[in-house]
């Protein structure tokens, strides 16, 4: 008698076959997934509704649903797109140009290094590295403290380094491996940007490149390179070495192997890396603040700027945040398609 309910209980947790889930597990899984969907989407929904609210509707809130518990207003959208007009579009275009170019560069250059670090063994000499750092320190010292011309100190430093390497490199025995290079690369991302922004500012100021797209593209490329190298390395490592070896036997050069075998096969990884770096450079704030003044200003500055002497202008801010997500979403959709295509072509070739 009492067996029946127990068996129902058991039934709930027992899958019909290996491919499908038990009913209870299914309910549980879906409710977790839906719950998380709510967590993810609610803040975005709130931003979206806020962009249609009048100031008084925000400070007197909460109001949840437009038309039902408050009368939506387009005032914030009008302010951002009509009153500010070109002042919104310019940073928008800047962001698109800067983020996309720096991403492409970072991913390509980073992939080259990642490929090299997975397949070629490097043995940089400890002595040369120490020598380099000492000489660079000297250059910085002479420029900053002794106030010599940077062009001069840099060329002296370079000359010193070259002669140093030629003169002493054969006495250096101890060398580092690929893992050390890798770690050195990633460690460059640990430094908080606050600390490195001033030297970078001075560098571009000396070159007369402040407030240009170029400065921001180069900087973003540099700060994101480590991530590109690291992520791509994992994806390249999974590609069987045999493919490369047979191609090399056929006489293909390294560059060709990299371009025609590795890059296409790693497309899913390439897409994921591109996406991540695109997002990071799209959203970067502090470096943009200093390297741009007017012409090259980017969107995150616009968002942050909505908090001024009158407190955060939630409605304007919400508009900007919402419109800032759009291009990234489009890019994500586009890149997502590339992933599935990449897998397909990869399968055909493999």
């Amino acid at each position: 008698m009492s067996v029946k309910p127990k068996s129902l209980w058991q039934k709930m947790w027992e899958p019909k076959d290996l491919q499908s889930m038990a009913p209870a597990t299914k309910v549980l899984s879906y409710s977790i997934l839906l719950f998380w969907t709510f967590i993810v989407l609610f803040p975005l929904y709130w931003l979206f509704v806020t962009s249609f609210k009048l100031p008084i509707q925000v400070s007197d809130g909460p109001y949840y649903i437009p038309f039902i518990d408050f009368e939506p207003s387009l005032h914030a959208w009008e302010y951002i797109f009509i009153d500010l007009g070109r002042d919104t579009l310019r940073p928008y275009m800047n962001s698109i140009i800067i983020a996309s170019s720096s991403t492409v560069l970072a991913v390509f250059i980073g992939s080259m290094a990642a490929y090299a670090l997975t397949r070629i063994e490097y043995k940089p000499k400890v002595g040369s590295i120490v020598g380099f750092i000492v000489i660079l320190g000297l250059v910085v010292y002479l420029t900053v403290v002794v106030k010599m011309q940077w062009q001069l100190t840099l060329s002296i430093g370079f000359a010193l380094f070259v002669s140093f390497v030629f003169a002493f490199s054969r006495y250096f025995k101890r060398s580092l491996g690929n893992n050390d290079i890798l770690f050195w690369i990633i460690s460059q991302r640990i430094m908080p940007p606050v600390v490195s922004v001033l030297p970078i500012y001075i560098m571009f100021q000396q070159l007369g490149l402040l407030d240009t797209h170029f400065a921001l593209i180069v900087t973003y490329m540099a700060v994101n390179l480590p991530i590109a190298v690291w992520l791509m390395r994992d994806f390249f490592a999974r590609i069987p070495v045999e493919l490369e070896e047979s191609a090399m036997l056929d006489g293909a050069s390294r560059m060709r192997v990299f371009l025609t075998i590795y890059m296409p096969l790693a497309k899913p990884g390439l897409a994921a890396t591109t996406m991540l770096i695109l997002i990071l450079s799209w959203n970067e704030y502090l470096l943009a603040l200093f390297l741009s003044t007017a012409d090259a200003q980017t969107m995150p500055l616009m968002v942050a700027a909505q908090n001024a002497t009158r407190g955060p202008q939630w409605w304007y801010m919400s508009v900007l945040i919402v419109v800032m997500i759009v291009p990234v979403l489009i890019a994500a959709g586009f890149i997502g398609k590339m992933i599935s295509k990449g897998q397909l072509s990869g399968a055909v070739k493999g």
Binding site: L44, I279, N283, Y285, M317, I321, I325, A332
Partner: peptide, 11 residues
């Protein structure tokens, strides 16, 4: 992750 960090903080 696509939302700008400054925006997330304000949200």
């Amino acid at each position: 992750i696509m939302v700008t960090p400054v925006g997330i903080a304000y949200a």
